[in-house]
């Protein structure tokens, strides 16, 4: 946890340095008439100070506390696969259309943890896609993208 804390503190210090630079383009104004940059600049300065406090704390403290549970390799695989699937979904949604993208998304996600039988995967994915479509498109009349295939 000590190393994690130091890493995060360093990341935060550099983030606030970057933000300080970015906020530089806004006009601070004066205390009498504070302008656009007043609030962000004040916040970023506070952020920098607190990150430094965190850094000092992390450096001074010995490894005593327990961090969160360690993630095994297969845990990371599951997370990466799930995230990739969702990002893919976002990218193809408007091109492929709601029904098809949802079906594919569900098929991939259902197999992310273990590999159930294909028949089961397809059934659940199909039923979900249709049910969610019904719920959103008909009951709630939310416009969902149709996609290249027209559905």
């Amino acid at each position: 946890m000590r190393r994690a804390n130091i890493t995060v503190a360093l990341a935060l210090v550099s983030a606030s340095a970057f933000l300080l630079f970015e906020a530089g383009r806004f006009n601070f104004g004066t205390l009498r008439v504070p302008q656009t940059g007043f609030f962000p600049k004040t916040l970023v300065t506070l952020l920098l100070l607190l990150s430094l406090v965190l850094l000092v704390q992390a450096l001074r403290r010995k490894e005593t506390e327990r961090g969160s549970e360690k993630i095994a390799a297969d845990g990371w695989t599951r997370i990466a696969a799930t995230l990739a699937t969702m990002i893919g979904f976002a990218l193809v949604l408007e091109w492929l259309g709601f029904l098809l993208s949802t079906f594919v998304l569900m098929v991939l996600l259902l197999r992310a943890i273990e590999a159930p039988r294909w028949s089961k995967v397809f059934t659940v994915a199909l039923v979900t896609a249709l049910a969610v479509y019904g719920l959103f498109a008909w009951l709630l009349s939310v416009p969902l993208p149709a996609g290249v295939l027209g559905f």
């Binding site: 799930t82 969702m86 979904f89 976002a90 990218l91 949604l93 408007e94 949802t102 998304l105 569900m106 996600l109 259902l110 992310a112 943890i113 273990e114 159930p116 659940v124 979900t128 969610v132 959103f136 709630l140 939310v142 416009p143 969902l144 993208p145």
Partner: peptide, 25 residues
């Protein structure tokens, strides 16, 4: 195995349905 894809799907569609905007996803 069945629950988490459903939660994620609802999050994805829920956010998209706000403004039909993929950037928000």
């Amino acid at each position: 195995v069945i629950l988490f894809p459903l939660i994620l799907l609802f999050c994805l569609i829920g956010v998209y349905s706000l403004n039909a905007n993929v950037t928000e996803i």
